[in-house]
Amino acid sequence: MDEQRIRQLEQLLGGARDGALLRYSLGAALLAAGDAVAAVRRLREAIERDETHSASWKLLGRALAETGQSEAALNAFRRGVDAAAARGDVQAVKEMRVFARRLEKTLAAAASAAQ
């Protein structure tokens, strides 16, 4: 099912419906299918098309975290908070702040353990 949905979305790339929402949807489908690396690429493309698309920022942070790129994920969440706040998307701001705090704690714990 996921592969079929991914193929359908990929067929729309470059067409009249191509934009942030399509790239976000493709990134979400790829992440759900377990391909976080490809999801990161598509979510970055979504943000290139609309830097205020807070859902793309949130999912990008999750995908980056899944690929082990914690610092980049934290940066995505922080930038996403700014984008969401600018749009008035209060719920996305709250969610990304929670995700960012969790990552900050994880990174701080890892830094302490390394010393």
Rank of each mutant, 00 (worst) to 15 (best):
E10P: 10
D50V: 06
S54H: 15
F77Y: 12
Q69T: 07
A85P: 04
G61V: 04
R79F: 03
L103T: 03
G27F: 10
S56G: 04
G14S: 05
L13Q: 12
A46V: 03
A33D: 14
A76D: 01
K94F: 13
R41V: 14
A86I: 09
A32M: 02
D82N: 09
S25D: 11
F99G: 00
Q4W: 08
L64G: 03
L9V: 08
R49F: 02
M96Y: 08
V40Q: 08
A32K: 07
D35N: 10
A85R: 15
L43G: 03
A32Q: 09
Q69F: 06
A33S: 08
E48Q: 15
Q91C: 04
R41D: 05
A20H: 08
V90H: 15
R44P: 02
K58G: 06
L12N: 03
M96V: 05
L30M: 09
L31F: 11
R23H: 13
S25G: 05
L64E: 10
L21S: 08
M1S: 11
A84M: 03
R49K: 13
A100R: 08
V90A: 15
E48R: 15
K105A: 13
A46Q: 00
S70H: 09
L30C: 02
K58C: 14
G27M: 05
A36N: 04
T106V: 10
L12S: 03
L12E: 10
G61W: 01
A85K: 12
L26M: 08
G68A: 00
A72F: 07
A83E: 07
K94L: 14
